[in-house]
Amino acid sequence: MAEQVALSRTQVCGILREELFQGDAFHQSDTHIFIIMGASGDLAKKKIYPTIWWLFRDGLLPENTFIVGYARSRLTVADIRKQSEPFFKATPEEKLKLEDFFARNSYVAGQYDDAASYQRLNSHMNALHLGSQANRLFYLALPPTVYEAVTKNIHESCMSQIGWNRIIVEKPFGRDLQSSDRLSNHISSLFREDQIYRIDHYLGKEMVQNLMVLRFANRIFGPIWNRDNIACVILTFKEPFGTEGRGGYFDEFGIIRDVMQNHLLQMLCLVAMEKPASTNSDDVRDEKVKVLKCISEVQANNVVLGQYVGNPDGEGEATKGYLDDPTVPRGSTTATFAAVVLYVENERWDGVPFILRCGKALNERKAEVRLQFHDVAGDIFHQQCKRNELVIRVQPNEAVYTKMMTKKPGMFFNPEESELDLTYGNRYKNVKLPDAYERLILDVFCGSQMHFVRSDELREAWRIFTPLLHQIELEKPKPIPYIYGSRGPTEADELMKRVGFQYEGTYKWVNP
């Protein structure tokens, strides 16, 4: 592979701008107003304001973009700056750019259920340069409990009458099928589907988006991507930290609602779906819905739930269990780990287990898709061969690698495990991989909904998990304890083995 010439960040961002501006969906010269509902909250200060700053800094926003914060707290732009700027990672050389960014910011205080507050917000936006005809993007960085009041008031008082209007809704989209349907029906009564952007930030990850290209742009994968060759698929999300004093919020939802029903299920769809007619948003989402419709409700015998306990040999936070978090209700049975087996009941995947695993306070930070292939028929190497695996590593250190057998150097035919490896950090030294939120917010500006969740996708996802969630809430089974920093409950490994996964433990990928 030829040595790549190092590029400056300015040059890299210039390439990104060229890609972005050559499309006809990006209205570079139009006025846009980006409204952050819930501007005083954690999500706004840690993710949304920093993301908008990065896009502005790199010249990736339309030229005439204004940012308006809205929340109940009586704040000023200076207050917003004070709480969000520490997350910007701005350099001293960017000081003038930073001043320009905050000059485009404003803030309006108001209630979430008060019509007069929204009329005041609308008047404020109209007073901005060309504000009355601007395109408006409303980001709901809010708890779902206020979605209905907020969307109703936005629709009645704050819509642009000339430009387009788009609304970005953060997960969780309800707690179960019934609450999700209620919320979807409410929002759909106010906005068209092409105006609604239900954001799952995992769909903005580079390697998640790469799944489609790997599958449908490489001839070698087509013939082997089926039940005849693939023994099982494992989708993993692991965090090495616990709730760390923020367990009160987590306890309301648990690990299945927080990660599995959305992030992991979306990745499953991209692995299992048929080739779409095109890369058009609805063509892709149509195929994802077909996959979900082929999955039956989760069966309790295919589920393992766990909850982390303190590690007596650990240090600091590792010595504390979930129930030691003062914000967690006493005696909570909320799971911090889950392993679930699903089956896609169609011709391509009949009988292939899709194993979804996620948890907190585990032994490493990792998100990946792992396809394990069947054993080689007619073994001539005296059971020395391990199964081939194709691994798409989402985070950290984005990579695609194939675990395969090669001859060990020497005189004899002794096979050993090795890999074919594409590590993004080595291959793409001159490429700026956008943060997931950067990519998705740019998608909203461009009107691309491919990486957002459609209402029928959402409904099918909740259909699969709601009976299990209701059973857990009714019966309150005690989750299996696992030690902070471990791989999780051993019962999860036993479940995976029972459905056909072979864990060798003899080879570990190392970032080159």
Rank of each mutant, 00 (worst) to 15 (best):
D194F: 06
E19V: 04
A2N: 13
G41V: 02
T145C: 14
L98D: 00
G174V: 08
Y107L: 09
Y70A: 05
R74W: 11
R182E: 14
V233M: 05
F26M: 09
L55I: 03
M37H: 02
A25R: 10
L55Y: 06
I35K: 01
D79L: 04
D181Y: 05
D251G: 07
R166F: 00
S84W: 03
L137R: 00
I220H: 03
A141I: 02
V108A: 02
F237Q: 06
E19D: 04
A134P: 04
S117H: 05
A115D: 10
V150T: 10
N229E: 04
A109T: 13
R136W: 01
D194Y: 04
N153P: 00
G248T: 12
G242Y: 02
G204N: 15
Q11S: 07
L203G: 15
N105S: 07
P172M: 05
F26Q: 08
I80C: 03
K95V: 04
R192D: 11
D30G: 10
L142W: 10
F88N: 01
F237M: 04
S157W: 09
N185G: 08
S160N: 12
R182G: 11
I234H: 14
E3Q: 08
F221R: 01
L190R: 08
Q195T: 12
F241M: 15
G163W: 01
W53H: 00
G254F: 02
K238L: 13
Y49F: 04
M212T: 03
E94Q: 07
E85D: 06
E18H: 06
A39P: 00
E85K: 04
H32D: 03
V77S: 09
F34M: 08
D114M: 07
Y70I: 04
A103V: 03
N153G: 13
S180T: 09
K152N: 13
K152H: 10
D79Q: 11
T51Y: 12
D58W: 07
G163F: 01
D176P: 05
L96R: 10
P86T: 06
Q161A: 12
R17M: 09
E18P: 05
P62R: 03
L183G: 07
I255G: 10
R136E: 00
D30F: 10
A71G: 12
R136K: 10
H201E: 03
Q209D: 15
Q119H: 06
N135D: 03
I67F: 08
R9M: 05
K205T: 15
N153K: 13
L140W: 02
L128S: 04
S117C: 13
N165E: 01
A115M: 09
N122T: 11
G14H: 08
A217Y: 02
F21R: 12
G110C: 02
I187C: 10
L142D: 07
G23P: 13
K205I: 15
A71Y: 03
G14W: 06
K89P: 04
E85N: 03
S180G: 07
T51C: 08
L211W: 09
S180K: 04
S179P: 03
F173M: 05
R166T: 02
A90Y: 07
R9H: 09
I15R: 04
E239F: 06
E193D: 04
I162C: 09
R104N: 03
G222W: 11
A71S: 11
L214G: 02
Y118K: 01
E206I: 06
I187G: 03
R219M: 13
F241K: 13
V233A: 06
A149K: 07
D58Q: 08
D24W: 08
L61A: 01
I154D: 00
Q11C: 06
R257F: 02
H27G: 11
A2F: 12
L211T: 07
S160M: 03
H201F: 07
A90N: 09
K89H: 05
D194E: 09
A109G: 12
L128R: 05
R104Q: 07
D58M: 08
R120E: 05
H155Q: 08
D228P: 03
I255M: 06
M159T: 12
H32V: 13
R9L: 05
Y49E: 00
H155I: 02
H27L: 10
A2W: 03
Y70S: 04
R104C: 05
Y49H: 01
G59E: 04
S84V: 08
K152G: 06
K95F: 14
F21T: 08
T151W: 05
E206S: 14
G245L: 08
V77C: 09
F216G: 03
G248R: 15
H155E: 03
H201V: 05
I80S: 02
N229M: 03
T65P: 04
S84H: 06
I36N: 01
Y197P: 01
Q195C: 09
H129A: 07
K97Y: 04
E206R: 04
I220V: 09
R192V: 07
Y112D: 04
L190N: 11
D30W: 05
K82Y: 07
R215F: 01
T243R: 08
R81T: 02
A78Y: 08
F102C: 02
R257M: 07
V5C: 11
L60W: 02
D113M: 06
L190K: 03
S84G: 05
R198M: 02
Q4F: 07
L130R: 08
G69L: 06
N218D: 07
E252F: 03
F216Y: 13
L214H: 13
H186T: 09
S157P: 01
K205Q: 15
L203C: 14
L16T: 08
V68W: 00
S73D: 06
L142N: 15
F87K: 02
A149D: 12
L61E: 00
A116N: 10
H129K: 12
K82I: 10
L121A: 01
Q209C: 08
S180L: 05
K238I: 15
H186D: 03
R257H: 08
N105P: 00
D42M: 15
E85W: 04
F26C: 09
G110N: 03
E18I: 09
S184E: 05
A71V: 01
S132P: 13
F56H: 03
L121I: 05
V169P: 00
K97L: 08
A90Q: 03
P144D: 14
L98V: 09
F21I: 12
I199F: 10
A78D: 11
F56I: 03
L16N: 07
D42V: 11
Y249T: 15
N105F: 08
A115H: 14
A231Q: 12
P62H: 11
S40T: 07
H27A: 07
M159I: 11
R192P: 11
T243S: 10
E156A: 11
R166Y: 00
A217M: 06
P223C: 09
A6H: 08
W53F: 04
S73L: 04
V108L: 05
Q195Y: 02
L130A: 09
P62W: 03
P144C: 05
S180D: 14
V146K: 11
S8D: 11
L20F: 04
A127S: 05
C232P: 02
R219Y: 03
N135C: 11
D30H: 06
P86F: 07
C232E: 06
E85C: 06
R257L: 06
Q83V: 09
S40C: 07
Q4M: 04
L183D: 07
N105L: 11
K46P: 00
A90W: 07
E19N: 09
T76Q: 08
G222D: 14
N153D: 03
A71R: 00
T31F: 09
L203E: 14
D30A: 15
W225T: 00
E19L: 05
F241R: 13
L214A: 12
E93R: 13
Y249F: 14
F221M: 14
C232L: 03
C13K: 07
K95A: 15
T51F: 07
G110K: 00
A149C: 11
D58F: 04
K82E: 12
V150G: 04
I15N: 05
H155G: 06
M37L: 11
L16F: 08
D42F: 09
A44I: 02
S29H: 14
